[in-house]
Design a binder for these strands. Structure first.
Lengths: 127, 127
DNA sequence: GTAATTGCAAAAAGTTTGCAATTCG
DNA sequence: CGAATTGCAAACTTTTTGCAATTAC
């Protein structure tokens, strides 16, 4: 993996805003410099295959990416599609289960779908 | 939600083969009767929104669907993309976390990516 | 009857690819 | 220099949509 200014810019964007779609990243990068959308996709793929980033799919089917620095478990709002990161405390339990099933686990993500505090509030008001 | 023969056929297919892509479902249904791909998608969307089915994305980006009868936690092989279901024993722990974060959790899925027994074996042989 | 559903065709959205030019190490 | 990466345009895949005809309740 080389160190190009395009890739750096993409990583920079990911460092700041977490959980961005390819399109999001493309827009943000292009505020600073001109980078092609295909370059964004190619880099996301490379980084994904190298385990540098993590992919999360919101309930409306949009893939969002974030740097895989630490654990990746998410609360995903069904209303506003915001993604909240939670510290994953279940790694050991999961690993245990995989051991039993002879599954060589490399990565996991826990996605909880529901309604975030804000949306819950709003919905209570309206309904 | 009405009860059409197309929808019944789709459900029937899902009952038998678990974790199928829209394309898979389309093919299988069409072994018996003629159903349009758009009908498959429309039904999958409706059923998804009504919580009847669950969506899982394999590492190669393919969306797969299965009936949401019970818990849904998966071991997803990075090599062969097969999806193994595991009984989710972490519901309580997760719910606890959501409570603390004031997140109204409705559904969760735990996806563990790694290598299944068979693929692990094969890889050991080769590498 | 009427509202939901379907098939068909066409469009939209998301992602990948071929190729020549460029750039990093 | 040589391999990896880029931009551009075009292709491909997946999913959605408009519309008229049909069907379930």
């Amino acid at each position: 993996m080389r160190n190009t200014k395009q890739r750096e810019a993409i990583i920079e964007v990911l460092k700041n805003g977490d959980h961005l779609s390819a399109e999001d990243i493309y827009s943000k990068v292009n505020e600073t410099m001109k980078v092609d959308l295909s370059t964004v996709y190619r880099n996301l793929n490379i980084m994904y295959n190298n385990g540098k980033i993590v992919k999360v799919t919101t309930s409306d089917g949009v893939n969002k990416f974030c740097l895989s620095i630490r654990h990746h478990s998410h609360l995903i709002c069904l209303k506003c599609n915001k993604i909240y990161e939670i510290p994953c405390c279940l790694s050991n339990e999961l690993h245990e289960i995989c051991n039993k099933m002879e599954f060589d686990d490399r990565e996991h993500n826990i996605n909880v779908y529901g309604y975030c505090k804000e949306c819950s509030k709003k919905m209570k008001g309206k309904d």
